[in-house]
Design a protein around this nucleic acid. Structure first.
Length: 108
DNA sequence: TCAGTGACTGACC
DNA sequence: GGGTCAGCCACTG
């Protein structure tokens, strides 16, 4: 088990998120073993956009807020990507978040 | 090796 | 009910 396995798994989970669904940093962290590693998941996302094609816009915080939108190219790119999948974003937060929530712990 | 940092979360006031 | 604080894990300099 290498250390990098952690964020490789993060990428793997994120890539498995179905179209039009979203998940949270905490859920991914919990799926990887430690619920408290949510910050590390965020770090993995930060690295992901430079190395791989990861649908990071489908990963939000537990409130469904687009916390990482500033890390995308355009200021509204993250929101536009979500809207392109049929989701509704208002004030940097996903409407009906509970409805679209996809939990790797139960779905994977 | 040590200290700092972050796309988070839960608890507390 | 909303804002603040501290803990958490893995990387970087």
């Amino acid at each position: 088990m290498k250390k990098i396995d952690f964020f490789l798994k993060v990428y793997d989970v994120v890539k498995k998120i179905p179209f039009g669904r979203v998940t949270t940093y905490g859920s991914i962290a919990q799926y990887l073993g430690s619920k408290k590693s949510a910050r590390t998941v965020g770090w993995a996302m930060n690295s992901s956009h430079k190395h791989f094609d990861i649908p990071a816009h489908r990963v939000l915080n537990r409130n469904g807020i687009l916390t990482g939108k500033h890390h995308f190219h355009g200021t509204n790119l993250m929101q536009q990507l979500l809207e392109g999948e049929g989701l509704i974003v208002k004030d940097d937060k996903l409407i009906n978040f509970d409805k679209y929530f996809w939990d790797p712990n139960t779905e994977l």
